Simulated scan of single mutants.
Amino acid sequence: MTFAADAVNGENGLPRPKDNLFPKISGKHEDFLSQLQKLKYEGKLPSTLEVEGTVKLHGMHADIVYDLHDEFADEAAMTKSILFQSRNRICAADENQQGWPRDIAQFPDALNYLKKRVLTRFEERNPDKVINKAFPLIIAGEWIGGRVQRGVGLAELSNRFVILSIQVNGIWQKDEDFADIEAEKAAIYSVFRARQMKLKFDTSNITADHPILFEMQRLADEVEKACPFAAAFGIKNSRGEGVVWKPGVPEARADAKYWLKTKGPICGKENRIDPVRIAADAARNLTIGDAATRWVTSRRIEQGFEYLLEMDIDPNKQTSIKEYINWVVNDVLVEEHNGIARYKNQFANAEQAVKKKVGYLARNAFLEQMKECGADLA
């Protein structure tokens, strides 16, 4: 039985696919500050914390997952132990989501080379640790180029897989340790083709008006104006997306709940670290209905349709509206959980009210899109 089948069935001791999937990264600086505060209370933050930023790429999330059980398998068996994932599901090796994973699956020698490079580097950087083969090796990345996403600089590049984060022993590793590892034969590159950004965060002042937060936002705005990763391949002054920030202490690097993504203004103003907007929102004292309306952003509406495409769900079928609404509602519940929690302090059925409002807005967005496309859902 192959690794993919085992993973689907949850057998052989490996985590189920949902446990291998890349975690969501908060786009809310309030979540980021809250997690830093917890680390501070636990005595795990230095007085000056280095915050590390890498370019956020506008494409389709994708992962290469390796089963490490068969250390002495031959090349053919090793290839069977490679699993390909998109954001929400396992993909067949010959599948074609704008080229993923078909385009790289045809280079098994390069994929096995990549695995060996990563594990060797891990052993070099961690001589006191043993690789635990009960955990898979996860190389998380972004599939970019061509028609994956339109209107961005990356669309001018040929299709390629860009390594963003690497997990060994169930822990996300320090990015810099693996920055030079690529497999160009299979069009696999490192996000470090663009420089890493580093800022000094004074942890005596973990508050919403911390000046470094505004600098993080400024840098994200600059990335949106001109994508540094695209520039590394000769595509100058083309639109990017933003930055992913990780606190530079081992515990925070290892767990995505401590990370923060910041995006430029084109992606929406909802989560921008903008002191004027933050003050205005506080003064307005938004109702839960206002908040739910704000959470159903144009990008979230778009992502709902991307989810249907990823899961091979035909939006023209009447049953697809339920799938769409469920995705939008669940995404809001996950990403806006702290905001919802604040309303729970005011009344007990806050979550139900959010579900109802978001579901209503998602339904309208779906029907509007289908109407524009001329779809008949009868």
Rank of each mutant, 00 (worst) to 15 (best):
P127Y: 10
L57W: 00
F178D: 05
F32I: 03
V354K: 03
V65C: 01
G145A: 09
I313Y: 10
I131R: 05
W245D: 10
M370S: 14
Q352L: 09
Q173F: 00
F84K: 09
N169Y: 02
E176N: 11
L57V: 08
V51A: 03
W245C: 03
R284H: 04
Y307K: 15
K40N: 05
I82T: 00
T79G: 06
L333Y: 00
N159F: 02
E372Q: 14
A140K: 09
S204Y: 03
D175F: 01
E123G: 11
I171G: 02
G59D: 00
L68D: 02
H69S: 14
E182N: 06
L119T: 12
I144Q: 04
Q149P: 07
F22G: 01
K356Y: 03
T319A: 14
K246V: 10
G146R: 08
S34K: 11
S204H: 08
K269R: 14
L260N: 05
H29F: 09
I212G: 12
E336I: 00
D331Q: 15
I90C: 12
Q196V: 02
V249T: 04
T287D: 01
Q85R: 12
I288G: 00
N338R: 10
K322E: 09
G264A: 09
A76R: 07
V354E: 09
I325A: 09
K322F: 04
N345Q: 15
D74V: 01
G10S: 12
S204P: 05
E222Y: 10
R363N: 03
A353W: 04
L57T: 03
K198A: 15
K198Y: 05
D376C: 07
A134D: 13
R239K: 12
V118T: 15
K38V: 10
K257R: 15
A76T: 01
P250S: 08
Q167V: 05
D94E: 14
H61C: 10
R195N: 15
W143Q: 02
K225S: 09
P15K: 04
T207N: 11
A93R: 13
Q346A: 13
D281W: 08
G339P: 06
E222N: 11
F22L: 13
I131D: 09
P265Y: 09
A140R: 12
T203I: 05
L57I: 03
I235L: 06
G234T: 07
P228N: 08
L164Y: 02
P315S: 11
E184S: 11
A230E: 01
F305V: 02
T2C: 13
I131C: 07
R16P: 08
E351T: 13
R89Q: 15
V332F: 00
A283D: 03
K38A: 08
H337K: 14
Y360C: 02
K28S: 12
V276S: 02
R125V: 13
K269F: 05
P136I: 02
N349Q: 15
R147F: 10
P275E: 02
D70W: 11
R160A: 14
T48P: 01
S238F: 07
E30G: 05
Y258H: 13
G289T: 02
A362D: 07
G339L: 08
E302C: 05
V354N: 05
S320G: 06
I273W: 05
D128N: 13
S204N: 11
R195T: 06
I171W: 07
Q346E: 13
I131T: 12
F135S: 14
Q196M: 12
